[in-house]
């Protein structure tokens, strides 16, 4: 059973939940108030929604051998635009549509740099990672913009039985799963990520596919940014979505999708995002000293990644028989 790629992440998740329940017996309680659910677990779902959403976009980017470091900055921009628009007297739906349109443009920019210009994804998106926060600062004129709009408040803090934010994230997750696995898109994405040269020679439109996943990642980051800013009724250009790209990448990696590209698992990403968010909650609930929080998180993440690695899993199973002779030897044998 330890062979299943999600065994260790799920084990970590269960372990963290048990730990929380021991420290705080009311952790697992779920109360019903006004037809909505409340409780420690529900809080994890609500607070984890932005990370999960960004991680879904990141999963597809990573599957094409790419990475998007700019998602945190894009999230900040989305919040800044929406709040500025509302603060200036605009209505919330227009504000959100405007913010998302800008995020699509930013995704187009990232995708252009990677797929057309051919810049390494880590560098191409680093541009927007740094420049994007500056852009958000310009939009908010360096201020934290607070808003009080009942409609805008819903996306991050509203409830329809469950928090609306997690419903959105789960909805996107399911839609992406249906879209990529129900059509040939998932297979083509994996093909481009596994072997870009072979895919091109087989006639796959790899440029278009790569470009599209960056646009989608930008859109996900935009929605996540709206959730974050809506939840606090404010746009903070400096701190909104700070380091969320790292949490999203970790969620994808913990979920078993390789940074080398190729096969991806959306279920894995879901588990990974839950592990990350539960860990963050745990750090506070068990009272880890603030100075040690980052170190504590790092230790847990390293442990999960180590347990998951192929070399470690070798230790948990009987030795396999030797690999067939390596390819170099086979080529020598060729006439």
């Amino acid at each position: 059973m330890t062979r299943h790629p999600l065994f260790w992440p799920v084990a970590a998740l269960v372990g963290l939940i048990v730990l929380n329940a021991v420290v705080n017996p009311s952790f697992l309680e779920v109360r019903i108030q006004n037809g909505a659910l409340y409780g420690g677990v529900v809080d994890i779902l609500r607070n984890g929604a932005p990370t999960l959403l960004i991680a879904v976009g990141m999963t597809l980017v990573i599957a094409t051998r790419g990475i998007d470091l700019s998602v945190g900055a894009v999230a900040a921009i989305a919040g800044a635009i929406a709040c500025s628009w509302i603060a200036a007297g605009g209505d919330a739906p227009t504000a959100m549509l405007l913010a998302l349109a800008v995020c699509v443009l930013l995704g187009l920019w990232n995708g252009f740099l990677v797929s057309v210009v051919g810049i390494q994804p880590i560098i191409a998106t680093l541009v927007l990672m740094t420049a994007g926060r500056g852009g958000a600062m310009l939009v908010t004129e360096g201020q934290i913009i607070t808003v009080d709009d009942p409609v805008y408040r819903q996306i991050g803090a509203g409830f329809v039985v469950l928090p609306i934010a997690i419903l959105i994230s789960l909805g996107v997750l399911l839609a992406v799963a249906a879209l990529t696995r129900g059509t040939a898109l998932g297979m083509l994405v994996e093909s481009v990520g596994t072997n870009p040269r072979a895919s091109r020679l087989a006639g796959v439109r790899s440029r278009r596919i790569v470009w599209t996943v960056y646009v989608f990642a930008g859109l996900c980051a935009g929605v996540a940014g709206l959730m974050i800013s809506s939840n606090v009724n404010a746009a903070d250009a400096n701190n909104a979505g700070l380091w969320i790209e790292m949490d999203a990448i970790l969620a994808v990696v913990i979920g078993g999708t390789s940074l080398a590209g190729g096969r991806y698992s959306l279920t894995g990403t879901l588990v990974g995002a839950l592990v990350i968010q539960t860990l963050t909650t745990t750090v506070y609930s068990i009272g880890v000293p603030p100075d040690a929080i980052l170190v504590f998180k790092a230790v847990v993440v390293i442990a999960v990644c180590l347990l998951q690695s192929p070399r470690t899993s070798e230790l948990f199973r009987p030795r396999r028989r030797a690999e067939p002779a390596d390819t170099r030897a086979q080529e020598v044998a060729a006439p």
Partner: peptide
């Protein structure tokens, strides 16, 4: 380097060119 999609199945590898020509939809 230019043929195999090593991580995918025989099925996916075999229909790759056909699928690419048909488009993802």
């Amino acid at each position: 380097a230019e043929g195999l999609i090593a991580d995918l199945t025989v099925r996916d590898n075999l229909i790759l060119a056909l699928q690419a020509a048909r488009g993802w939809m």
